[in-house]
Amino acid sequence: MLKNFLDDKGVAYKEVNVQQDPIAAQRLVNATGQMGVPQSNVNGNWVLGFDPNSVMSFLK
C-alpha cells in the first residue's frame, strides 16, 4: 500500500527488502527498535506502518 501511495503521489523512494538483506534488517532494528514493516525514513523521521498523513507531513 505504501509503495502504491508513493507512486500515485510521484514520490521517489528507495526500497530495502529486509527479508533479503539481514544487515539492513539489523540497521533498521538498531535505528527504530522495531522489526515491523513497512518502515519509512522520510527526511530523517521514521514512520512505522502505512501512515500517509505522517509521510506527507515529513515531505513538506
Results as ranks from 00 to 15, higher is better:
L28Q: 10
V37S: 09
N43V: 00
P38R: 06
F5P: 06
T32I: 08
L59A: 04
A24C: 05
P22E: 14
V11L: 03
K14E: 12
M1S: 14
Q20K: 15
S54K: 15
W46D: 05
L2F: 12
W46Q: 06
V47I: 04
L59F: 02
N30L: 11
G44M: 00
M1V: 13
L2I: 14
V47C: 01
S57P: 00
T32Q: 10
Q19C: 10
S54N: 13
L6E: 02
M1Y: 13
V29E: 03
S57M: 08
M1H: 13
L59C: 01
N41D: 10
G10Y: 00
L28K: 05
D8H: 12
F58D: 11
A31H: 00
L48P: 07
V47T: 00
A31T: 03
V29F: 06
K60A: 15
V29A: 06
L59R: 04
D51A: 14
L59E: 02
P22T: 12
N45G: 09
D7E: 12
K14R: 12
E15Q: 14
G33Y: 00
N4M: 11
I23H: 13
K3A: 09
A12N: 09
Q19M: 15
P38A: 07
K60C: 14
N30H: 10
M56K: 14
N41I: 11
P22V: 12
N17V: 07
A25R: 15
Q19G: 15
M1G: 13
G49H: 05
S54P: 08
N41H: 03
N43S: 02
G49P: 05
L48I: 15
A24S: 07
W46Y: 12
S40H: 04
D21F: 01
V16C: 06
K14V: 12
Q26Y: 00
V42K: 01
L6M: 03
N41C: 10
I23K: 14
T32M: 10
Q19E: 15
G36Y: 02
G10N: 08
A31I: 03
W46H: 09
D7Q: 10
L2G: 13
A25S: 14
N41R: 07
V16Q: 06
A25I: 05
Q26W: 00
A25P: 08
P52A: 08
Q26G: 01
N4H: 12
K3Y: 04
N41Q: 11
V16I: 14
K14N: 09
D51K: 15
I23W: 06
V18P: 04
D8L: 07
L2E: 14
D8G: 09
I23V: 15
A31S: 09
P38F: 09
N41F: 07
T32W: 08
N17D: 15
N45F: 09
L59G: 05
M56C: 08
A31E: 06
E15W: 09
N53K: 13
K14P: 01
G36S: 12
F5Y: 10
Q26P: 01
A24W: 01
P52M: 03
G44I: 00
L2Y: 11
F5M: 04
A12I: 07
D21E: 00
D51T: 13
V55M: 06
L28T: 08
D51I: 12
D8K: 15
